[in-house]
Simulated scan of single mutants.
Amino acid sequence: MSSLIAWILRAIPFGTIIMYGAMGEIVTEKSGNLNLGVPGIMYLGGFAGFASAYYYENLTANPNPVLSVVIALLCALIASTLGGLIYAFLTITLRANQNVTGLALTTFGMGVANFFGVFILNGSSYSAAPLANKAFAAKIPVLSGLGTVGQVVFSYGFLVYAAIVLAIVLFWFLSRTRVGLNLRAVGENPATADAAGINVTRYKYVATLCGAAISGVGGLYYVLDYNQGIWATTEQIEALGWLAVALVIFTTWKPLNAIWGAYLFGMLYWLYQFLPSLMGISVPSYATDLIQMVPYVVTILVLIVVSLRRKKENQPPASLGIAYFREER
């Protein structure tokens, strides 16, 4: 029982990181833009949030935890939105290839974060923002102490619960509001939406920027909560970014599916660590990477099944990845 609880406690925070990345990409792709720069945007959001909290803690005599959270969130949102703006300008205004632009943005985001991160590390292997970490990882008072239920359900930072609420809000927005339906129309057939009086360029820009901002929060959560407020020059955020892109396909572009899908990915990713205690199966060291590939294998299987069934509601937006030329309408 204790191993199962430990497995869940490891899977839910891990899943929350990729849930933010996936939800941001779902919003972007609903407009018809395929942004493969999610890993780079998560890098930008994570570094900007950490750097702002780090300097606030070290340059202020009596830093306030709440203010530290606000500053980190604000800076992460600004940095990731700027990353989205770069992508939007290149692909929407200049009509550059979306796949190439997204991959370039991933490299750009990683490079910028690691370059400026050198000044914070200052020769060390890592730097930390303990005050921000304590604020972001704070558990719900009283409820987190209610036995096994409290330990499993209420033992996480506020961004875990914010991710679930955001998924529900996005579902309602995309399926119940006029603006959300217009956004989906832009992603399905921008020419028809344009003819109906919908400003295609505006919707694409806003969706791309909002999607990037949401993805950036995933990077922030990784650094200041999941990674205990520590910044180090590793490529873990990039790996999680690609897992978030895979999660978009797994969820068939539905925000609500991102909730259970993200936690399932988390369970599968950490399966190798808990198999020995749960089932008495020893996992050789060389099989660890193979087991961690399971979420990607599951995504491929889902993609095959969805493609064979050809249900309209489970397909990506019809104009996904295709630049819109109004002159060809």
Rank of each mutant, 00 (worst) to 15 (best):
I5K: 04
A11P: 03
I12A: 11
M19W: 05
G37A: 00
V38A: 05
I41M: 10
Y54W: 00
Y55A: 04
Y56K: 02
A61G: 01
A61P: 00
N62S: 10
V69Q: 06
V69I: 06
V70G: 01
A72P: 03
A79L: 03
T91Y: 04
T93F: 11
L94A: 08
Q98H: 02
V100Y: 10
V100M: 14
A104L: 15
A104E: 07
L105N: 00
T107V: 14
A113K: 04
A113V: 05
N114M: 15
F116E: 02
G117C: 05
G117L: 07
I120M: 15
A128F: 10
A132E: 03
A138G: 03
K139R: 15
P141K: 00
V142Q: 12
G145R: 05
V152T: 06
V153C: 06
F154W: 14
V160L: 12
A162V: 15
A167M: 13
V169F: 15
N182Y: 12
R184S: 10
A185W: 06
G187R: 01
A191M: 09
G197H: 01
N199W: 09
V200H: 01
T201Y: 07
Y203G: 07
Y203A: 10
A213C: 03
S215L: 00
V223L: 07
I230S: 06
T234F: 09
I237V: 15
I237R: 02
K254V: 11
P255D: 03
P255T: 05
A258V: 15
W260C: 06
A262T: 00
L264P: 01
Y269L: 13
Y272N: 14
S277F: 05
L278T: 10
M279L: 14
V294D: 08
I300C: 08
V305D: 05
K311A: 14
N314D: 14
N314G: 14
Q315G: 09
S319Q: 09
S319N: 11
G321I: 06
I322K: 14
F325N: 06
F325M: 09
F325P: 04
